[in-house]
């Protein structure tokens, strides 16, 4: 008799706690929220830089340096937001190097970007040794899932403030490009250098600034990695999010809201593999884990067409030719 009630109890807890197949869409939603934030910030930052007519492939370097700086400062000051601020500052310094070097004649922005990536990652690994064993205060999350009794739903809907900021930032950036003077200047510099110069703006200065701001945002994306998800400072923290996000900007055709959607899509698709395995689908986990890349490629093949190549591309951008 006692045994029977035990079994019943067990089944009940099983039903209440395990979501079964419903866990898959939930995990994908949660993945979109959790894993997309770094992509979101890097992509929005790169969007700004590329709109000014320059491509910065080195955002991975800014991201990793930002991750370290954010973690280190949160650890030292005890305030994670101080860490985020520092991450932005360090990121903008990386952007400054890129911006200045690329303003020299005949210097190729893509090559400098790759060198910045190498330099940033190397420097972060070098300086980061003392922080691997440390812990730092994390960024807080907003518990939007408070209404649910399910731990899974609560966890999926605990949304980090940076994610919210990023999502708000995307439409604001559209407004910035469309209706502010500075936005118009960035676009003009990106579309036609001569016209901008004729209008009395220095393309060089605008581009350096755009690169610095873009790289600062990559730094913030890095701080999200080290201060929230997955958290902690280690040398394998970034698995190429910075590089991939740069590609997402081209995918999103230089439109901030599309950048946001692309980042969400990418984060969501990344959750497919682990979520399927957690309900027992284990065949081909390597292939499922490649889902974000396959999905992006397929969408591009469908959405692109030979005759309207890269609509929305800034005229001065080297990759868009």
């Amino acid at each position: 008799m006692e045994e029977q009630t035990d079994v019943l109890q067990e089944q009940l807890t099983g039903v209440a706690e395990a979501l079964g197949w419903w866990g898959v869409p939930l995990a994908i939603l949660a993945g979109a929220i959790r894993a997309s934030t770094p992509f979101l910030f890097v992509a929005l930052g790169e969007c700004l830089t590329e709109r000014s007519g320059r491509i910065n492939l080195g955002l991975e370097g800014g991201l990793v340096m930002g991750a370290l700086a954010g973690f280190a400062f949160s650890h030292i000051t005890g305030n994670p937001w101080a860490g985020v601020l520092m991450a932005a500052l360090v990121g903008s310094l990386m952007g400054l190097i890129h911006g200045v070097l690329c303003s020299l004649p005949r210097v190729n922005d893509i090559a400098v970007g790759i060198a910045i990536m190498l330099f940033g990652v190397g420097l972060a690994f070098y300086l980061g040794k003392p922080f691997i064993q440390e812990s730092a205060p994390r960024l807080p999350a907003v518990p939007l899932g408070f209404w649910s009794s399910s731990g899974a739903v609560q966890s999926a809907l605990s949304v980090n403030a940076l994610f919210v900021i990023g999502v708000i930032l995307a439409p604001l950036m559209v407004l910035f490009f469309r209706s502010t003077r500075w936005g118009l200047v960035v676009r003009m510099v990106g579309d036609n250098e001569e016209a901008a110069r004729a209008a009395g703006y220095s393309p060089m200065r605008v581009r350096i600034l755009a690169t610095m701001v873009g790289s600062a945002m990559a730094g913030i994306g890095g701080a999200f990695l080290s201060l929230y998800y997955p958290g902690g400072w280690s040398e394998g923290l970034s698995s190429g999010q910075g590089l991939m996000a740069v590609a997402l900007v081209i995918f999103a055709r230089w439109h901030p809201v599309y950048c946001m959607l692309a980042a969400l899509l990418f984060g969501a698709a990344g959750a497919i593999g682990p979520a399927l395995q957690s309900v027992g689908v284990s065949w081909g986990y390597y292939l499922f884990n490649a889902a974000p890349y396959v999905l992006t490629l397929v969408i591009m093949i469908i959405a692109c067409s030979r005759f309207r190549t890269l609509r929305g591309a800034p005229g001065e951008l080297s990759v868009a030719r």
């Binding site: 590609a247 081209i250 890349y293």
Partner: peptide, 26 residues
């Protein structure tokens, strides 16, 4: 893909790399 569909080769080659590694591992 670039020539016939206008897919940017910088992204497509990066994506194809991740796909190739997944295929190899699988």
């Amino acid at each position: 893909l670039r020539h016939y569909r206008g897919v940017n080769e910088t992204i497509s080659t990066l994506l194809l790399t991740y796909i190739a590694i997944a295929v190899l591992n699988h």
